[in-house]
Amino acid sequence: MATLKVEIVTPEAALWVGEASSLIARSSDGEFTILPQHTSTVGDIVPGVVRVQTGEGELAFAVHGGYFQVGPEGSEGVTLATVLAGVAERTSDIDVSRAQTAKERAEAAIAHEGRGESGESAAHAEATAELERAELRLRAATK
């Protein structure tokens, strides 16, 4: 039997490891689905929601950018799909009110920055990244 093993890992911990029927994510080339027996692939993942279909239903993860690798695993018929993300979380673990405050804070920081002279400062980049993360969290959690 062909099976798909999915690993969603961050530097701090392996977020989820288990058997799945499919994995849906978006790379810079567009959305893709990984099924068992998928050919070996390496690619990037743009920030967005990664969906994993398992026997017990669908799991969704907010992945803030990363990479994936698909390849055969040691044992026969097992395809291993690894998602490597710097920051990622289960959508069910997202604290909506916290993400909302983070979003407002980041927006305020950007507005404040906008009045200053420096357009592309490190603080600005950080606030923009913060805003993107917060927006993705909200999008993922409310979907």
């Binding site: 790379s27 810079s28 080339d29 893709f32 050919t39 070996s40 692939t41 390496v42 690619g43 990037d44 390849g71 055969p72």
Partner: peptide, 10 residues
């Protein structure tokens, strides 16, 4: 046999 058969995006 697997060498060179990996797909890349991008």
């Amino acid at each position: 046999g697997l060498k060179g058969y990996t797909e890349f995006e991008p």
